[in-house]
């Protein structure tokens, strides 16, 4: 089984007086087909870890290999390209463009990585079918429920056929029924071979993952429950 990503001794220090150490030596490996949950209270370094994993931020020191390629020494341009083509983002507040139809929103995936318009449309239709919104193409996001909006955002992330689906508090704005439907969708995607990394503070969401890691004060620790389940964390 190949690694999707591997963090080794990653530090991220923000220049301030005194300097703020958000990540203090994180080691993490995610393999293809993993379904991993990262849990932690606010202020624990979750956001910073998300930004580093999503190639939106660069570690101060340490190594971050994505599909075998070292990203910390990449040019900004290559890193942006890698982010656009290999990582799908799902956010707590969906970040749908409210004035564009569902189909147009999903078609944004792949816009900046050179996928032709017709191909993006085909892929978007397929992705919407995959998340169960094949009948909502012409709707504006404002007319959808929270759960449906998050499904649209997941479809958008899937259009580029990413190696990693990076989800930041994907159920933070949803009620329990919608949360359940989104988590069911994650299970389906997992079954279909997708690699999922979910950052959350919600224990029920984390419990659905294959394994959990806990982040506290910028350090990764294996949760007791997860450690009992398996010991694959390096």
């Amino acid at each position: 089984m190949t690694d999707v990503l591997e963090l080794a001794a990653v530090h991220r220090v923000f220049p301030a007086d005194p300097p703020v150490t958000a990540l203090a030596g994180v080691d993490l490996r995610v393999r293809r087909g993993d379904y991993l949950a990262i849990v932690g209270p606010s202020g624990s370094g979750k956001s910073t870890l998300l930004n580093v994993l999503g190639l939106l931020d660069v570690p101060s020191t340490g190594s971050y290999r994505f599909e075998g390629a070292e990203t910390t020494t990449m040019s900004d341009r290559r890193r942006t390209g890698l982010r656009g083509s290999r990582i799908g983002f799902v956010f707590q507040s969906f970040h749908l463009l409210m004035y564009r139809s569902v189909l147009e929103n999903v078609m944004l995936g792949g816009l900046y990585t050179g996928v032709p318009l017709a191909e993006r449309r085909t892929r978007a239709v397929a992705a919407l079918d995959r998340v169960g919104l094949g009948h909502r193409h012409r709707f504006l996001p404002s007319r959808l429920s929270g759960g449906e909006r998050q499904r649209v955002a997941i479809a958008r992330a899937l259009v580029g056929d990413p190696a990693l689906l990076l989800c930041d508090e994907p159920t933070g704005n949803l009620d329990s029924a919608n949360t359940a439907s989104v988590l069911d969708l994650f299970d389906d995607l997992r079954a279909g071979g997708a690699t999922l990394l979910v950052i959350t503070h919600d224990a029920t969401v984390a419990a659905r993952a294959d394994r959990q890691v806990r982040i506290t004060d910028g350090r990764i620790s294996i949760t007791p429950a997860a450690a009992r389940a398996d010991g694959r964390i390096s």
Binding site: G84, F91, L97, L111, G160
Partner: peptide, 13 residues
């Protein structure tokens, strides 16, 4: 700002 962030996350340079 959020839209710009989204587009950047989607690979916009």
């Amino acid at each position: 700002t959020a839209e710009i962030g989204l587009r950047r996350a989607m690979g916009a340079r």
